[in-house]
Write a protein that binds this DNA or RNA. Sequence first.
DNA 1: ACTATTCTAGAATGATCACTCTAAAATAGC
DNA 2: GCTATTTTAGAGTGATCATTCTAGAATAGT
Lengths: 198, 198
Amino acid sequence: MARQKEFNQDIVLGKAIECFWQRGFSATSMKHLEAATALTPGSIYNSFGSKDGLFLACLDHYNETVIGARVKQYLLPAEAQYLNAPLAGIEAFIETAFDPGPAELCLGCLMVNSSVELGPHEESVRLRSKTAMKKVVKGMQYALGQAQAIGQLGNDIDCRQRAQSLLLLFNGMLVQWRGSPDKKWLKHAMHSVKDLLH
Amino acid sequence: MARQKEFNQDIVLGKAIECFWQRGFSATSMKHLEAATALTPGSIYNSFGSKDGLFLACLDHYNETVIGARVKQYLLPAEAQYLNAPLAGIEAFIETAFDPGPAELCLGCLMVNSSVELGPHEESVRLRSKTAMKKVVKGMQYALGQAQAIGQLGNDIDCRQRAQSLLLLFNGMLVQWRGSPDKKWLKHAMHSVKDLLH
DNA sequence: ACTATTCTAGAATGATCACTCTAAAATAGC
DNA sequence: GCTATTTTAGAGTGATCATTCTAGAATAGT
């Protein structure tokens, strides 16, 4: 009915996610976001309403494109590579989270970082975090179930409980990584992960 | 040689810690800190140099009075209560971290929170976080060793490795808590902890 | 009591914050 | 091509940011 937007929303959200991911919500200014997205204030506020609105849109987009995609790739049956090796899929899901991002920064997980930064004060963030964590647990639970089905994991194990333990361990690793760029600890940590896959 | 300070530094640091603990570094303003400490800008800058300086002083104070004290209370041999039950000490060390703070806020651990918020950009924070984490691991390692000595833990277990796994799990729980005020998950999580104490 | 030094109170600083406003540019329906 | 509507560019908004400044109050050594 009128003029059309000049930018692609997904690309813009991707760029904004990079900003929030590196610096967190509070330390990211509108100037940063304008520079990263190459948008003017008017366009941002016209599309997202506020810095908060853009941030929540980022969390939703991250939840779909990063977390959702990774769960599908490594944990759910879509990927042929891990069809007969679901435990290897879980390992890969965790280990690949520790590839350094741009500028050699330890990004960790935007959802975890945001939950730590804003969780106690922002219901909206808590909600999205909970959704994301649930998705990961479900994925791991599924993979563990598959492992049981093909005899790679004992049938005495409670997959849901074990998946939750894995998530806690994984989140702990993400935290550890933000504070330790060197990955010497990662090898030991992956050993802890493997202990939970027997 | 001249006028003496009117405030007690430890009390002031305690109040400032509360601020940073609740809101994180970036979201805490000098106004917040002035109100909480009942100090004027001049006094704060005279004693701590900058907001950053005050923050680092808080991390050091927290490391001594909170983390150090808790390690000593629950993990090291000082406390008679856990002398013959080192594993119970580890459990208590972890479980008591999830008592809600003032205003029913999920505080978690200031060191973990700060590491997530600022770790990738602030060497000074990373350094202090690493020191604190090491202290906790050493404490847990000691308690695990004691458990082995009195036959409550198998001698085949690598205490250092196990302590690191416990720390990761613990950090994961602290993260989880910031995003979930309800503690239904805590019971399951403590179950995961106990799995690592056998 | 005097002096040198430090601390405190609180107003004032420029910078930056998230956000808004205005006018021009673009397009869909007529 | 005209009109109605939306998006864009970019200057401008008051508020708040961390920090500094200035003047006065307090105290230790002389």
